[in-house]
Design a protein around this nucleic acid. Structure first.
Lengths: 201, 201
DNA sequence: CACCCTACCAAGCATTTGCTTGGTATGGTG
DNA sequence: CACCATACCAAGCAAATGCTTGGTAGGGTG
């Protein structure tokens, strides 16, 4: 048994990962374009030039932040689609998974919400557009299955419904704060209830 | 009857107003901080310095854009609150007014959605925070009245419901396009229906 | 014709920004 | 002890950005 010394082996975040966490928080707070490399370096206690020892560019940083997160998120959606729950349960699970992502990966969600439109204009971020299409497909599949199996109203406009759900779920990242008045499972409960049954008495 | 020559008297937009319209579109597209005065000047076909003949600063431009819009919007909310419709109708009207604002003042809504958090950090934009509080009050009043009068479920979490409604309604500015597949009244119809009765069969 | 107002140009300045370059300190590892 | 990888500093550059200054063109108005 030889002694190990790399951070990974000790189950600690590497310096690189630490810097990405710091960058993600700043990108989420101020937006990608409005966060300077000097902001990130200051928050990390180093000089801006030193960041370039770890990363090629500011873009590489968001790239790594977003692609890592999305891979994990879409793996969860795939699980739901592959399961043999009924349509209603799948829809519920999809909503819950999303609010959970806000809880656990708030900065990543916020960056995607705020900066994806801009980033997509660069070739290297083309995968963001693909993920967007994929996400749309997930929700539409669930909604259409719901209508087909009779769980949802037959007259439902699934395209519009998809947009409403997507907006409400993901924009919650703007106000949801871990440790706040409602925890994420409670928020998901309330939204599922309203979505399925409405607010009428 | 003397001949008049000012744009206002001829019912034409003044140069100042034209420039504000151009600026609003750019601010909405790229964000306030990421729109340069040169961008605005280019779009208007003049040099960047010439903008300062019309406006004190870039900030003055958003200021005028946002304050003008909000004044008109909140006058409509006040009308609704003052009316003697029942709670359900008032809620419906509030939703409709909001989607209508997206139709008719898309850039203004987008700027508020994207840049208010940043702008509020400046004293001169303190009124944006006031408007935010005011808007919250409008929705909470309507929801509470609904619960009180029995139109809405007695167990409704009005705070959470307010957030869900606000998010869905205003974030629609990201995807709603005038002249697109659904017009704004149709979008409002569908959302009101889902909000009140849910998507379940 | 003299005057003036509106709308603009031409040139530039100070600051901020992403990134580069060449070097240094430190703690393992053979 | 020699070597090397990791993590950083110090200094600076080119481009972009908000805004300033002094001037000009042209259409009304008395």
């Amino acid at each position: 048994m030889s002694a190990v010394s790399t951070p990974e082996a000790k189950n600690e975040p590497s310096r690189r990962e630490q810097l990405l966490t710091i960058a993600a928080q700043l990108f989420a707070e101020k937006g990608f374009r409005n966060t300077t490399v000097r902001d990130i370096a200051d928050a990390a206690g180093i000089l801006s030039g030193s960041l370039y020892h770890h990363f090629d560019s500011k873009e590489s940083m968001v790239d790594e932040i977003l692609s890592t997160f999305q891979e994990a998120l879409f793996a969860q959606y795939d699980d739901i689609l592959a399961s043999d729950d009924n349509a209603r349960s799948k829809l519920e699970r999809a909503v819950r998974v999303s609010f959970e992502a806000i809880e656990e990966h708030g900065p990543e969600v916020a960056i995607y919400q705020n900066d994806a439109d801009y980033l997509v204009t660069f070739e290297r971020f083309g995968y963001l557009a693909d993920r967007n299409t994929q996400s749309r497909q997930v929700w539409l599949t669930l909604l259409e299955e719901g209508v087909r199996t009779g769980a949802l109203r037959p007259d439902l406009d699934v395209t519009l419904t998809y947009r409403f759900i997507r907006d409400t779920v993901w924009v919650a990242v703007r106000w949801y704060r871990p440790g706040g008045q409602h925890d994420h499972t409670e928020v998901a409960d309330q939204y599922v209830r309203i979505l399925l049954d409405g607010i009428s008495s």
